[in-house]
């Protein structure tokens, strides 16, 4: 080993002397992310049960291929050559955004790659180059995914507003699904606005806050949100599943939508 047992260092003979349950946090993260990936993969490939008037599952929004079920395509169906599920066309944007997110990077580097598994617990790898080489150097494009995330924020908000119709398409109605989609849109916005790249773009990049009072103010607000970025990453992820699962149950006919008016 070249690390904690390198010549000259104190010889301790073990990879860590920690006796607390340091493995608990990476294990919980692993289980949480793994379950999400399994569910999301199944649902994204399924290509069915994602639309129940007037609700569209966030995994399938926007629905852009000619395979999309009637009524689910708010922005037309420009893509006819795609043989697979319509969710897979747009998947790269939310997936890329979360994969390159500074918080999720920390989460999966620790829990999936053990680099490191926990602080002061030696990692199992022989060599390490961090994010300096391909493919991990691509983490640097995170801000581009953030630009797309802004567009998705608008689309998901639009979906939530469409939820104020009844199954016949008349406005002025509301059901439990509307509330679920509204919360989903709000959480996606909060997650994307608390992003570290957003904090940088809004004002963090400046050298003189005093010359840009408005951007300084925005940076301060984003910084407050940014402190909760990890929480928002998890809550918005879990809520995606809640929203999709609710709509699936409706589409299957397992439950019926609770209509308020």
């Amino acid at each position: 080993m070249t690390g904690v047992s390198a010549p000259g260092r104190a010889r301790l003979g073990v990879r860590t002397l920690r006796e607390d349950r340091w493995w608990l946090a990476p294990l919980a993260t692993f289980v949480g992310l793994f379950l999400f990936v399994v569910y999301a993969t199944f649902r994204a490939f399924q290509g069915a049960y994602y639309y129940f008037e007037p609700y569209l599952s966030p995994f399938y929004s926007p629905c852009l291929t000619t395979d999309c079920v009637p009524g689910s395509s708010d922005f037309g169906q420009p893509i006819s050559w795609w043989p697979l599920s319509p969710a897979l066309v747009i998947l790269i944007f939310p997936l890329g955004f979360r994969l390159t997110c500074y918080y999720y990077r920390k989460a999966y580097y620790r829990s999936f790659w053990f680099s490191p598994p926990a602080c002061a617990v030696a990692e199992p790898h022989r060599s390490y180059t961090g994010e300096t080489r391909f493919p991990l150097i691509l983490q640097n494009i995170h801000r581009y995914f953030w630009y797309f995330a802004m567009i998705f924020g608008v689309i998901l908000s639009y979906d939530a507003i469409l939820g104020f119709r009844n199954p016949q398409g008349q406005w002025g109605h509301m059901g439990l699904g509307t509330v679920i989609l509204l919360i989903n849109a709000a959480l996606i916005w909060l997650y994307a606005l608390s992003c570290h790249s957003c904090r940088h773009i809004m004002g963090g990049k400046l050298k003189h806050f005093s010359r840009h009072p408005r951007r300084y103010w925005m940076w301060q607000q984003i910084s407050k949100l940014n402190g909760r970025h990890m929480l928002l990453a998890w809550v918005s992820l879990i809520w995606l599943v809640v929203a999709d699962f609710y709509i699936t149950l409706l589409a299957h006919g397992t439950i019926s939508d609770l209509r308020f008016f």
Binding site: R105, K106, Y109, C119, E131, T132, L136, N226
Partner: peptide, 25 residues
């Protein structure tokens, strides 16, 4: 670029400097 923002530095800092969030990122 070698830092993979896993935040152990922030966890141990006795001055509670937000090393990763406020400096490295």
């Amino acid at each position: 670029g070698m830092c993979n923002i896993t935040k152990c530095c922030t966890e141990v800092c006795p001055e509670h400097i937000k090393i990763t969030d406020n400096a490295i990122i």
